[in-house]
C-alpha cells in the first residue's frame, strides 16, 4: 500500500517535471521525486509493530531488540540523501534566482531560447 503511495508520489514528481515551465516549480517537482524515493527507502526498513532502533533504558535484551527494531540502515541512508537533496536544492534555487536576475524570467523555455551572451 505504502509502495503504491511512493510510486504515485514519484509519478506526481515526474509529471510536474515534464509539464511545468517555471524553474521553481521544476525544482519543487524534483524535491517531490526525491522525497518519494526517500519514503520508499524508509518503508523498506519498516517492519510491523517495530520499535525505533534506539537502545533505551527499557530495552536490555539485545536479542529481542534485534527482533523488533526496524532496520536502521535505510534511515541512515535517507538522512544522507536528504542532506544531499538539500544541498542540490539550495544550489538550484540560488541558480534560479541568479537566472532571474540575468534573464528576467523563470520560464524555462524562454531561458533556453534566449541566446543572451554574458555581459
Amino acid at each position: 500500500m505504502v509502495y503504491v503511495l511512493c510510486a504515485m508520489l514519484l509519478c506526481v514528481g515526474i509529471f510536474g517535471l515534464i509539464s511545468q515551465k517555471n524553474v521553481i516549480k521544476i525544482i519543487i517537482s524534483i524535491s517531490i521525486m526525491e522525497n518519494a524515493v526517500n519514503l520508499f527507502l524508509v518503508v523498506i526498513g519498516y517492519r510491523r509493530d517495530g520499535i525505533a532502533p534506539i537502545i533505551t533504558e527499557r530495552i536490555h535484551e539485545s536479542v529481542q531488540f534485534a527482533e523488533k527494531a526496524v532496520d536502521p540502515l535505510p534511515q541512515a541512508m535517507v538522512l544522507t540523501s536528504i542532506v544531499i537533496g538539500l544541498g542540490v536544492m539550495a544550489l538550484m534555487v540560488t541558480m534560479a534566482l541568479r537566472i532571474y536576475h540575468v534573464y528576467g524570467t523563470y520560464d524555462i523555455t524562454e531561458i533556453l531560447k534566449s541566446r543572451k551572451k554574458a555581459e
Binding site: 539550495a90 536576475h101 534566449s114
Partner: peptide, 22 residues
C-alpha cells in the same frame, strides 16, 4: 545568501524585465 539575492531584487522595485518583452 538566498535572502540577499531576493532583497536585492526587491530594492530595485522594477526587476529586470527587459528581456521578457522579446
Amino acid at each position: 545568501a538566498l535572502s540577499a539575492l531576493r532583497i536585492s531584487t526587491d530594492e530595485q522595485d522594477e526587476p529586470i524585465r527587459t528581456l521578457e518583452d522579446k
